[in-house]
Design a protein around this nucleic acid. Structure first.
Length: 199
DNA sequence: CTAACGATTCGCT
DNA sequence: GCGAATCGTTAGT
């Protein structure tokens, strides 16, 4: 069951990020189908979050997509090599998004291994935002893609994560963001090996 | 126009 | 477990 538009329009990105845990990210790209359960996310908020690209609603050519209506993909190039996949949320002009940091492979594992040029399965396949984008076949060209279409979408497979199995912690790479660095806006599933290393 | 940095990953010890 | 590689975007000269 594909998540409906209303899910993405929720006005509190910090409440939405943990709700994406346990949902399944699916892609149908280059004729191949892949799916992975979301096990780690981070919330970014344009209004009061200094760590966010869209802090104080500042627009640049790169982050323009973050200001779109919820339900589209925002894909951003980090460190010159890594594509980071984000889900834009809220209504237009808010600049809110959820970064997907790690997946647990569910379907199309052979395809993922090929894309990653790997022979055997290990947690590096989809642990980490740059890795999972490659494994799922997501590239910069998919920036602004709707998550309601038939190329990239997110499914609810009735696998809700209980609150006691969700761990909130501080985000990575935000030391210079002052008070925003303390916000516990990183969410992951307890005892899941596919999460990138805990801080 | 130029310099600095970052929502990271990979290979090696 | 740790340190180097890497380059587009941003902001400052």
């Amino acid at each position: 069951m594909k998540l409906p538009l209303e899910f993405y329009l929720h006005n509190d990105v910090v409440a939405l990020a943990p709700r994406l845990l346990g949902k399944v990210l699916c892609t149908h790209i280059d004729g191949a189908f892949s799916a992975g359960m979301i096990v780690e996310t981070e919330a970014y908020c344009g209004d009061n979050d200094k760590a966010c690209h869209a802090f104080k609603y500042k627009r640049t050519a790169r982050n323009e997509t973050m200001f779109a209506q919820g339900g589209v993909a925002y894909i951003y190039l980090c460190y010159g090599i890594h594509y980071l996949f984000n889900v834009v949320t809220n209504v237009e002009n808010k600049g809110d998004a959820v970064l997907i940091r790690a997946l647990e492979p569910v379907e199309g594992i052979e395809t993922m291994l090929q894309r990653r040029k790997m022979n055997k399965l290990n947690t590096r396949l989809t642990a980490g935002p740059g890795s999972l984008s490659i494994a799922m076949g997501i590239a910069l060209a998919d920036d602004k893609s709707s998550l309601l279409g038939n190329r990239i979408w997110i499914e609810d497979r009735n696998n809700d994560i209980l609150p006691e199995n969700i761990i909130a912690s501080t985000r990575v790479g935000v030391e210079s963001a002052e008070e925003a660095a303390l916000f516990p806006w990183r969410f992951r599933i307890k005892n899941n090996d596919w999460c990138s290393k805990a801080k």
